[in-house]
Design a binder for these strands. Structure first.
Lengths: 343, 343
DNA sequence: ACGGTTGCCGCAACCGGTTGCGAAAGGAGC
DNA sequence: GCTCCTTTCGCAACCGGTTGCGGCAACCGT
């Protein structure tokens, strides 16, 4: 039973040629209607489905798109942000009838899929592209393989990227804090060295300058972008006794970590320290105090990335896009209020 | 440039036969070492990779496994529980060198992948299998296609399933609440009609009886398993003035919803009402008060499911498994304390 | 009744690899 | 110098479909 049915099996039973059966199944008008019906009937009865590989060999039809995840997939899945992104991608992919091939494999392995024709296009998470990956990807892109990056990757990566305007996002947060009269704003950034984190760090630095906030090296603390990392970084910051009015986190998870460290240290939020997250994941409104966060149009990002890829795969062109971010103000930010506690 | 390289291209350039080139690339000892090197070199230089479809045609080697998501993929991605599951699956899949094909397509479409040979095995989420899907899946299974279900599906589904002992989980929660002296325990269940939800409802009912808790139809409120649904259901429950000591939620999201409704209604947690979640997602420890929750070995579930599938694909056998759950007690449950508020 | 259409269908080549087997080239042994 | 055995390759068939084109029968008109 497990034995695969082939066209030949059908044609033998029907006393027809393979080609005839093939055409009949594809509703070729060349074949008499009666014959078509007869073939279709047997095929249904036997549960026949043409072999995908064989069909792919002649019909150069699109098959699937690949989504390349970072090696540390744990990071991805732990962050609801990526869930949202994935949702955007898969929802569009479903509409287009494309399965999504997921891989946490190292990039080189993955790009092979493209060359092998297992996938017809590649979606990469810009933040997960390392310098070591750039060359391989650039080669693919130069060879006109469809590749789209979600968020910009390393500068050297010559790829269409769909991202949000992170610089503006950081600035929105800083402007908000400045308006609240907060000057000493720490940034719990992503891991030092990643282009992605460096980009936001630059945005933070220039923002600090632009808005006339306190510039202090001690206020920049890298994290590993996890909640635990955020908590630990924030705890270290507090332990260093650096004066602190507010914390801007690289993502919501880090912000949650900061919240718990602040609570442990007995600092009130937002009375003593305001906290701003990034991404505006569902977590933000769940936690208490509800998190002020820079909203990215995350799902839309996933959708647009897929659409861009689709266009590329169809032989068309696609442009890089920077979507706007928006600051969602909730309870975790507010003016400093030196009532209760010390003084 | 986009023109695909074929074996023939290589063989022509090298003045060798296709077969020789093919063998050389696969390091066949039949081929002289020098020749192998020469071939490999050119292949590398040209960036040649054999076409996956063509290769699949002759080598009946495993290619990928499919993960069948429910139609409402939004639900899946919104729940960190599934992220964890996915992490388990993909981490194992990566080790095994299997890409994971994701689909939110309706099941019939998906099972076709299996028949077409696009995937060599299928992982389904038991909770997302509808009665309409059962027949098709059973047919596949009867034909000895490798299928593994994560959590048990409908009773009629004859599939190997890897799940947790949900009945025990529900009982653990109820036992805990009983020990706290709480008798009126509401259950915010999953959607009525789904086999999955009904299973837990049965567990709840029998648990209520076993532990001598209050049995009241009004205490059973179905939700759609989202946070909003949980909030709304809990609000309705409160509005109905049904006396209430504790709430057991179908998952952590629902529990979070309940928390916010309770807060809005001015009920203290756990002073007035205790809340227990299910799944013990990362959310549980983030929210305040931190959520007591029934922990499922979620990631392990994903891993074991993949392993079972792998075994099936290798022609071996696999057994259904029920993993144990564990109650993680945090701040959201405690003895009733009628101090502050009314009376 | 006969040449010409038309409608259906089958032959065979092809997609891009893999593989069994036989043949040519080269070296060893005598 | 002539067998005989290896080593190294190439021929051809095959995997399971798709497709160009040609053949055959039935049917048409006259």
């Amino acid at each position: 039973m497990r034995r695969k049915l082939t066209l030949k099996d059908l044609s033998d039973r029907l006393g027809l040629a393979r080609s005839t059966v093939s055409r009949a199944l594809r509703d070729d008008p060349q074949i008499a209607v009666a014959t078509r019906a007869r073939v279709r009937e047997l095929a249904d009865a036997l549960g026949y489905h043409p072999n995908a590989a064989a069909r792919a060999l002649t019909q150069r039809t699109p098959h699937a798109v690949g989504l390349m995840l970072p090696r540390s997939s744990q990071l991805v899945f732990a962050n609801p942000y990526f869930s949202e992104l994935l949702l955007g991608v898969t929802s569009r992919a479903e509409e287009a009838g494309f399965p999504v091939l997921l891989s946490t494999a190292p990039h080189p392995d993955f790009t092979v899929w493209l060359r092998e024709g297992r996938v017809d296009g590649l979606l990469v998470l810009g933040s997960s592209v390392t310098d070591a990956d750039v060359a391989g990807l650039n080669r693919l892109i130069a060879a006109r393989y469809p590749v789209v990056s979600i968020h910009a990757g390393p500068r050297a990566l010559q790829v269409v990227s769909i991202g949000s305007n992170e610089r503006a996002g950081v600035w929105q947060a800083l402007a908000h804090l400045q308006q609240l009269g907060l000057r000493r704003v720490a940034f719990l950034s992503g891991p030092r060295g990643s282009r992605y984190a460096e980009r936001r760090i630059r945005a933070y630095r220039s923002g600090v300058e632009t808005f006339g906030l306190a510039s202090d090296r001690a206020l920049l603390v890298p994290t590993d972008d996890t909640r635990e990392g955020g908590a630990e970084a924030c705890a270290r910051l507090l332990a260093s006794e650096t004066p602190l009015d507010a914390v801007l986190a690289d993502n919501d998870l880090v912000a949650l970590g900061a919240l718990s460290s602040l609570r442990q240290a007995g600092r009130r939020v937002p009375g003593d320290v305001s906290v701003v997250g990034f991404d505006d994941t569902p977590l933000a409104e769940v936690v208490s105090p509800a998190l002020t966060s820079v909203r990215q149009p995350t799902r839309r990002l996933g959708e647009m990335a897929f659409d861009a890829l689709l266009s590329l795969m169809a032989g068309g062109s696609a442009q890089s896009v920077r979507l706007a971010t928006r600051l969602i103000v909730r309870e975790s930010t507010g003016p400093a209020c030196h009532v209760g506690g010390a003084t």
